[in-house]
Design a binder for these strands. Structure first.
Lengths: 140, 140
DNA sequence: TCGCACGTGTTATATTATAACATCACAAGC
DNA sequence: GCTTGTGATGTTATAATATAACACGTGCGA
């Protein structure tokens, strides 16, 4: 995770595809897109290595509970991030919560645990989906 | 997720195996253990259904970033849980952080997001591993 | 020029998870 | 008693996710 980025054409292309996606996107979806763009098949390691690099740089985040990736909403290397994941429509928004961050920091150090990487994923219903008639009005 | 548990022999056996494990345990590890205990192979759906049930009941938690399961440290249905995951020794401890919980509640409702399920996973170094000479002294 | 570091390609395979259907036991209602 | 429905479990097959290991090329400093 050195400070200077090395955005090769492949890495830029994958990053652009992730940014272009309205929702978190999966590795094999990217693989399909990449293959079509290039006119020849891309293989799994290609995409996983690239995702790994972009993640380590802080340009994208992996959403563990979805096995999917999303561009970081807060420039490279935001220190902490909370994902609000709507289980109805699939939308994911990345927010910040300084208070949560501090609380976790305190809780960790109280146990002499040195926190390096925090993942907070909140599943539920977004504004649009949550305000529909209770108990799942969507998707007939 | 009704209130009354239906702990069949299979479910109890799997729950016991998870409780007996010092570390989070993976689905296919459980599958192997179960097969040996019974003297005949158990298949993947058996274990996944059971894990799903135990998770829904709140008896165990799935640790997303590890694809593994751990018994809940706080009786059935604890409302929230933070996992401190040591990347060195693999130990995972489940703690509570009311403050983090409240912070996330506030952040969610501010965005009119109805939170249903929160997953907080903190990777880093536990006390034992973190106090060794800096930069990974372990695992020769 | 040599050799190394590193990005990417390629082949193969490991790991994690689910769909779909079969069977069985038990309980509610006739 | 019998039937029928429901839910747990078994079984077969396959999907989805991820990594190991090695090959190749390019650029760069010794």
């Amino acid at each position: 995770m050195s400070d200077d980025l090395d955005l090769t054409p492949l890495r830029r292309e994958v990053l652009d595809m992730i940014k272009a996606s309205a929702r978190p996107i999966k590795a094999y979806e990217l693989l399909g897109l990449l293959s079509r763009r290039r006119g020849r098949v891309a293989r799994a390691p290609t995409i996983y290595r690239t995702l790994d690099y972009l993640t380590r740089c802080g340009l994208i985040h992996r959403i563990e509970s979805l096995n999917a990736y999303q561009a970081c909403a807060h420039a490279p290397a935001c220190p902490e991030h909370v994902f609000l994941i709507c289980d109805d429509c699939g939308e994911v928004s990345e927010i910040e919560s300084m208070d949560a961050r501090i609380a976790l920091e305190i809780a960790s150090t109280a146990r002499q645990f040195r926190a390096e990487q925090v993942s907070i994923e909140v599943h539920g219903a977004c504004r649009a989906c949550g305000t529909e008639t209770p108990a799942r009005a969507k998707k007939p």
